[in-house]
């Protein structure tokens, strides 16, 4: 009975958290998009800062990981191709592995590790230091000044980063195929152009956009859950990372199943 009770209580807590996160998302957009003109330039500045931090400043690490992933994928593909019966699979595998699946999810992981923890930690500190209350005292709605710009900035940044990731990974694949396996560029390009369809790019974009929203909402929510003590902050940062990873994987499989089954 005790186990049942605890399980039920844990499930109810998850459902309650999910509903709260949904409310946070809807409320931030309602407030963020409502009464345009007031505070727009300030909020726009915060959005730009978020894009700079989440997107632009993460380009270096994304480029390195994408380049290596593209190279590894090509090496593995070449080792499999003779068994699978033809070089034409190279493009197909690159699109499926990099563009459809690993590009969006690895980009999301990088963003969770860099920016997600930063958001949860920053908001946690703002809660403990009463900065959120200070914003309210100034008549500034934290939903509009803190949450909304982070959701918008992060979704735009992850969307753009993922596009960048895919381009660099495909370029990494080309470099390996050109210099190690001596696969001609024209052939590589031809394979890719035959394999890459509009929906591959679109689905990848949709995934990334949703990952950005999900990570931002979870991390903001966790940050706001800090109440009294600084010791709560690392705990919520860890929880934000774990929840974000779960959520991204869940959404990834749902979208993949929806579009490709």
């Amino acid at each position: 009975m005790d186990i049942l009770e605890r399980t039920g209580s844990a499930i109810w807590q998850y459902i309650s958290d999910l509903l709260d996160m949904g409310t946070l998302f809807l409320e931030s957009f309602r407030v963020g998009m409502g009464k345009r003109g007031r505070g727009d330039s300030v909020v726009f500045g915060v959005v730009m800062n978020q894009i700079l931090f989440t997107g632009v400043e993460a380009m270096k690490i994304v480029a390195v990981i994408a380049l290596l992933l593209g190279g590894v994928t090509i090496i593995e593909t070449f080792s499999l191709v003779p068994d699978l019966g033809g070089d034409s699979l190279i493009g197909k595998i690159m699109v499926v592995v990099v563009v459809r699946e690993l590009g969006p999810i690895i980009t999301a992981f990088i963003v969770i590790g860099r920016s997600g923890t930063a958001i949860a930690t920053e908001i946690g500190y703002m809660m403990v230091n009463h900065e959120i209350q200070a914003l309210e005292m100034m008549g500034i709605n934290p939903m509009r000044y803190v949450v909304f710009p982070r959701i918008v900035g992060m979704s735009v940044a992850v969307f753009c980063l993922s596009f960048f990731f895919n381009m660099v990974a495909l370029f990494g694949g080309y470099l390996v195929s050109r210099f190690i396996i001596h696969y001609p560029f024209t052939l590589y390009l031809d394979d890719l152009s035959r394999a890459l369809g509009f929906w591959d790019v679109a689905v990848s974009g949709i995934k990334c956009f949703l990952f950005g929203i999900i990570v931002a909402v979870i991390c903001c929510y966790q940050g706001f859950s800090v109440k009294f003590s600084f010791t709560e902050i690392p705990q919520v940062a860890t929880r934000a990372v774990v929840w974000s990873i779960y959520a991204c994987f869940a959404v990834n499989i749902i979208i993949t199943a929806f579009f490709y089954i």
Binding site: G37, R38, G39, S41, V42, M138, G139, I140, Y145
Partner: peptide, 8 residues
């Protein structure tokens, strides 16, 4: 400046 800029 934050609240003054916010309310513009």
């Amino acid at each position: 400046a934050l609240p003054l800029r916010y309310y513009g």
